[in-house]
Amino acid sequence: MKFGVVVFPGSNCDADTLHAFRVVMGQTARFLWHKDHDLRSVDCVVLPGGFSYGDYLRSGAIARFSPLMREVREFADRGGLVLGICNGFQVLLELGLLPGAMLRNKNLKFLCRYVTLRLENERTRFTHQGRKGQVLRIPIAHFDGNYYAPPETLREIEDHGRVVFRYADAEGRPTEEANVNGSLHNIAGLINARGNVLGMMPHPERAAEPLLGSADGRMIFESMISKF
């Protein structure tokens, strides 16, 4: 599979994400420059973490206007695989490819730490190598990860099993204490109705090698690579 990692000005997990796909997973992967209008015939587009445009104004708010986003939207509309990690998730929300918005973390501080996630939906193109209820240990690093959506949207995504990951304790219970940033329904990762666009706040590329403390994020990459 061919992966394309979009580089916005201010992206800072672009190289990490490329490393994860190319070196750790052994896939073909390349950068896609945000000013181009060319997806270079990749099979999957990844919007990496970072501070696109400094996150000035609002996280992801300016990146959605980057020239390449027109192609990314068309690609998603055709059913192409799109993964947004952290700032990439925020860009997907701003693009309207996923519903809802991010507020500041409930403690009003940047939070970098490991969290445990419960895999809620294992029947997606991003998670089919996992099992329902599985607990994943993956780091987060964000200031705006407190997921919000109006009640009717929440009901809609819950009813259709579109919550893919929830912040949970080590036993997989979505407790208030485990909900470190204050997200509604402990939502850490969300998929679109068609099942080809996933946004998640935790960083799977930081949990792909045991050397760094966890390889739980590999399941997501393995799912994307292997046949659904």
Binding site: D16, A20, K109, F110, L111, C112, E209, L211
Partner: peptide
Amino acid sequence: VFRQYDHMVQTNTMVL
């Protein structure tokens, strides 16, 4: 203090 810092970006941090 250090949870307010991104201490893992660049994916090289072996010891937190």
